[in-house]
């Protein structure tokens, strides 16, 4: 079986994700080639930036079709997770439509009753609340801290494996069949994030 392929969707965190996978001993390739992506044993779609430019880049590189047709395990990270949904409020853009639902902007809230203000972007370490056990989350405990940087998020529904709360709760980890998403940055979430990536690499291709 061929390598784990990281889709080159122009995100600045591409290098960090690749290094994290290399530290886990994975055979990893960075690609924007549709045939190579289709032949991969596993595919990771990282992403930093805006939904519209992310989707535009995938279309420009003619990768939206191959991503839609993948049957092997697919993990979207941060913006990469958001692109798996049907659409995003960010720029009103149509996304890949691999997971039902739409991504919405996080709501900022002023400080009140001694509680700190909710600021957007949601930037920093926050905790996971586990909702469903899943091989992707094996070894990760309820309340584990992971690193988030985002202004948009997917709603909580039956596909949500773990939530996080920033003002309202949102989907922090999602699974729909063989499609997975992490709203946080596993490559920047210390031991917990490395565990999630290691778990993803163990999902049978």
């Amino acid at each position: 079986m061929s390598a784990t392929v990281l889709v080159d969707a122009g995100g600045a965190n591409l290098g960090s994700v690749r290094y994290a996978l290399e530290r886990l001993g994975a055979d990893v390739r960075v690609s924007r080639d549709a045939a190579e992506i289709a032949a991969a044993s596993r595919v990771i779609l990282p992403g930093v930036g805006a939904a519209a430019s992310g989707m535009a880049l995938l279309r420009e590189r003619d990768l939206n079709k191959v991503l839609r047709e993948l049957t092997q395990p697919l993990l979207g990270i941060c913006l990469g997770m958001q692109l798996l949904y049907e659409g995003s409020e960010e720029g009103g853009v149509e996304c890949l439509g691999l997971i039902p639902g739409s991504v919405r902007k996080l709501a900022a809230e002023p400080a009140r009753d001694g509680k700190p203000a909710i600021r957007v972007p949601h930037m920093g370490w926050n905790t996971l609340q586990l909702r469903q056990s899943d091989p992707l989350l094996e070894g990760i405990g309820d309340g584990a801290h992971v690193y988030f940087v985002h202004s948009y998020a997917a709603p909580v529904d039956e596909r949500t494996l773990a939530t996080c709360q920033h003002g309202s709760p949102f989907a922090a980890v999602v699974r729909s069949g063989n499609r997975y998403g992490a709203q946080f940055h596993p490559e920047r979430s210390s031991t917990v994030g490395m565990r999630l990536l290691a778990n993803f690499l163990k999902i049978p291709a």
Binding site: G15, S16, Y19, R23, Y147, V149, E187, R188, T191, M194
Partner: peptide, 11 residues
Amino acid sequence: VERIARVIDIP
């Protein structure tokens, strides 16, 4: 910068 990025797993 790259040397740090290769080994570190926090931002």
